[in-house]
Simulated scan of single mutants.
Amino acid sequence: MRQIVIIIASLLLISSVSAETLNARIEAGKPVRLGFANEKPWAYLDSDGKPTGLINDYTIDILNRMGINHIEPVFTEWGGLIPGLRAKRFDIITGGMYILSSRCQKIAFSEPIGRFRDAFIVPKGNPKDIHDYPDVVRESARLVTGVGYNMTNSARDAGLSESLIIQVPGPTEILSAVKEGRAEVGAVPYFTALYLAKQAPDSLSVSDPARATSQTRHYIGIGFRKEDNAFVELFDEAQAKYMGSQQMLERVKKYGYREAQYPDGIATSQLCQRQ
């Protein structure tokens, strides 16, 4: 009988934990856990182990405005962000994730925080004149990108052979593959491309996203579990007041974020319906 009671108590505890919303965690005094991969300049840990980067700084400012200061970072690989959020290993994805319909089926997003395009790191001078996915296909170039990145599907949709697509854990491996000649193109978000090219200025260049005529402009949002929609509404209210404020401008300008990246009025609900 005692064993049965223990089992029932354990099941009730598991059920309680699994049903816990983010609002309930906060009310209980528990930390809000930010989940992200180590991807500069979007989200990473500084030398003191504190969360920093464009999306972390942006999100933390908004949480502070909401009166939330108990925050913890949780580091994982990019491909583990959505599974980790759904498994409640952390509460918010701050990795700089594009709002895509395939992702909207699994998680909830805040309203967009900015609009961006993909870009490529290429050999110095961009000798094959690659600026868009059709250019990659034209040159039959080997393309490297990260596991779970939308760039894989973009390359496939453009018609690039599966044998020419290389998937690696993240930016460090993408940089190495292009530098070492194992790939001719590294596909990443534009800000990531700028950062990576700075690591090897004598050997790498960045494509011009303005010449990427086939690309849809992508919008980044903060990721939440679907059951935390009540919190997302509060976050969006705080974000609307933060967007374009002096505090925001001073916080994000060092990462290259400018007015050109401001959301242009499109709603997350509309982006989630895009195919």
Score class of each variant (00 low, 15 high):
residue 260 A to D: 06
residue 188 V to N: 09
residue 84 G to M: 05
residue 181 G to H: 01
residue 182 R to C: 01
residue 78 W to K: 07
residue 106 K to W: 09
residue 36 F to T: 11
residue 162 E to R: 15
residue 18 S to R: 09
residue 157 D to K: 15
residue 113 I to Y: 06
residue 84 G to K: 06
residue 148 G to K: 06
residue 153 N to G: 10
residue 274 R to W: 09
residue 242 Y to G: 04
residue 228 D to Y: 02
residue 93 I to N: 13
residue 9 A to D: 09
residue 109 F to G: 04
residue 38 N to C: 07
residue 70 H to Q: 09
residue 12 L to G: 03
residue 223 G to K: 03
residue 146 G to T: 13
residue 194 L to C: 12
residue 10 S to E: 10
residue 210 A to W: 00
residue 222 I to L: 08
residue 121 I to F: 00
residue 164 L to V: 08
residue 231 F to E: 14
residue 53 G to H: 05
residue 146 G to F: 11
residue 126 N to Y: 01
residue 7 I to F: 03
residue 123 P to S: 05
residue 128 K to N: 14
residue 262 Y to C: 00
residue 101 S to I: 10
residue 231 F to N: 12
residue 96 G to C: 02
residue 14 I to Y: 13
residue 226 K to F: 07
residue 54 L to K: 08
residue 37 A to D: 14
residue 161 S to K: 12
residue 170 G to V: 00
residue 39 E to L: 12
residue 182 R to E: 10
residue 172 T to M: 05
residue 19 A to E: 08
residue 254 K to V: 04
residue 195 Y to F: 15
residue 121 I to P: 02
residue 203 S to P: 09
residue 109 F to P: 03
residue 47 S to R: 13
residue 152 T to G: 07
residue 272 C to R: 01
residue 190 Y to R: 10
residue 139 E to C: 11
residue 1 M to S: 14
residue 214 S to A: 11
residue 85 L to V: 00
residue 230 A to K: 13
residue 244 G to P: 00
residue 139 E to I: 00
residue 196 L to T: 10
residue 215 Q to M: 11
residue 162 E to T: 09
residue 101 S to C: 03
residue 177 A to P: 07
residue 256 G to M: 01
residue 40 K to N: 05
residue 273 Q to T: 11
residue 111 E to P: 04
residue 133 Y to S: 06
residue 271 L to A: 07
residue 199 Q to P: 07
residue 262 Y to V: 00
residue 9 A to S: 15
residue 64 N to E: 09
residue 110 S to C: 07
residue 144 V to L: 02
residue 150 N to K: 09
residue 237 E to K: 15
residue 265 G to R: 09
residue 221 G to D: 13
residue 216 T to M: 10
residue 57 D to P: 00
residue 201 P to S: 08
residue 255 Y to W: 07
residue 204 L to Y: 00
residue 190 Y to A: 05
residue 168 V to M: 01
residue 74 V to W: 09
residue 87 A to R: 12
residue 221 G to K: 02
residue 134 P to L: 05
residue 149 Y to S: 14
residue 14 I to M: 12
residue 80 G to N: 15
residue 102 S to M: 06
residue 71 I to V: 03
residue 47 S to Q: 12
residue 57 D to V: 06
residue 229 N to E: 15
